Amino acid sequence: MTARDAAAHAEDAASLTVPDISLDRLHDAILDIARAYNSTSPPEAHRKAKELLLDAQDKLERTQVPRQREHLYLTAGQAAAMLSAVCFDLGALQPAVQHFRTAALYGQIIEHGPLQAYAHGALAFLAYWSGRPAAALNLVRTAQGFGGLGATARSRLAVIEARTHAHLGDREQAVRAIQDSLAIHHTDRDELHDDIGGEFGFTSERLAMSNATTYLLIGDATGAEEAATRALHLLDERTNGARPMLISSQAATDLARARLLRREHGGACEALEPVFDVPRDWRGAGVLERLAAARAQLTHPDFRTAAQVADLGERIEEFTAGSVSRHLGGSAHLTLDT
């Protein structure tokens, strides 16, 4: 009976599996979501990522094959990370935090360094957005300690570290981290940031755009204008269909903010003109926060008598009021003002 019971148990366990072709389909799905993220509206990306996460979780309940479970945990973690990115773009910060924590836990289960690093880096980003830069610095240090990271992952974490130091008021360390983000020239790759890429990647224009924001935080108008201009030039080299709207609108807003620091309101209006053409579904939290900071800059006494500035302030308010983020309850934290 013992042998028979053992055989029956083994047969039951062997029956708990899913077709490998289903795993291939899930892998293709995460590739599609990540790589098409910049050309997919946030609401549509949210729907796709949610469906993928539920599918991966369902299949985890149906297989006991270690190889398949590892694959499914990775897919579930990647889908959770995509959901987090969408939640952030829609201004829903608390769900974004929860999903990134879920991604980090899935990464821990299978000891996947790049997924854990990506999630912890994003949690650091959300921490300083929530006014906790000291906690953000601890999270980014943890992220930098995971193994298996390629050059793209390390550049991304250096950018997040730079912004953290800027929020802490440490200008010297912020500039050092910016320089570190630009000085990583080795060709090491990892399967998340490089092989999948897309939203998991960190392109040159995204790096420049992010560093522009850090320069603004430390009050360096020249550095911010140069970095934002570089980001926009890199984006101009792409075809129109491949131009990421979220990144381009943030870079343009940072360019405007740099010019406002110089009291060049005409140049700021010019930089913001394409931003006002961004469709309602694409007005993510990143650009809304930057616009809120620009709106605050417009209250400077030097602009008090400029009619053009008053008109610009009204356009910013109208643009923000019509965003999906605001209709979903997103709130402005003004963590980006200088």
Rank of each mutant, 00 (worst) to 15 (best):
T213L: 13
D195T: 04
L291W: 02
L288I: 13
D311M: 05
G223Q: 08
Q308W: 05
R290G: 11
V287W: 00
D236Q: 11
G267K: 08
A293S: 10
D302E: 09
A294Y: 02
R230W: 00
L272V: 03
D254C: 06
M245E: 13
V278M: 04
G198T: 03
E205N: 10
I247C: 02
R243N: 11
D302H: 10
A310K: 08
L260K: 05
L246D: 08
D220K: 06
T214R: 07
T305C: 05
A306H: 11
D236A: 11
D277N: 12
P301H: 03
G241S: 13
E205V: 00
F200A: 02
G223S: 07
A212R: 01
A224V: 05
S204P: 04
V309T: 15
S204C: 04
Q308M: 07
A251H: 10
V287P: 01
D236M: 06
S204Q: 11
A258H: 06
I247V: 15
C269H: 09
N240P: 04
E289I: 15
R290T: 02
F303T: 03
Q297G: 01
L312D: 09
F202H: 12
A231H: 01
L207H: 12
D195H: 07
L246R: 09
A292W: 00
D236K: 11
H300A: 14
P274V: 15
H233N: 14
G219I: 15
G267I: 03
M209P: 00
D254W: 04
R263E: 13
N211M: 06
G266E: 15
A268C: 11
D277Y: 03
E199V: 04
P279N: 10
F276C: 08
L232K: 04
T203M: 03
T214F: 10
A258Q: 08
A268V: 10
E273M: 09
N211I: 03
H265S: 14
M209C: 09
Q297C: 06
P301E: 10
W282T: 01
D302S: 12
D311A: 09
E264I: 08
L216P: 00
D302K: 05
G201T: 03
E264Y: 13
A306M: 06
W282M: 03
D277K: 12
R257S: 07
A256H: 01
E226F: 00
D254E: 09
C269S: 14
D236R: 12
E270S: 15
L255K: 14
G198L: 04
G267Y: 06
D220H: 05
A294T: 07
R280M: 07
H265E: 01
G286S: 13
L232Y: 10
R283W: 05
R257C: 10
L235T: 10
G197Q: 02
A251I: 14
P301V: 07
L234A: 13
S248K: 06
G284K: 02
F276N: 05
L234F: 13
E237I: 01
L261R: 03
G219T: 15
A310W: 04
L312Q: 13
A221H: 15
A294C: 11
A227V: 10
L261F: 09
A292R: 02
E237A: 14
E225P: 01
G197Y: 04
F303R: 05
Y215V: 00
Q297E: 11
A306I: 07
A285W: 05
A251F: 12
E270I: 15
D302I: 07
R206L: 07
A208E: 12
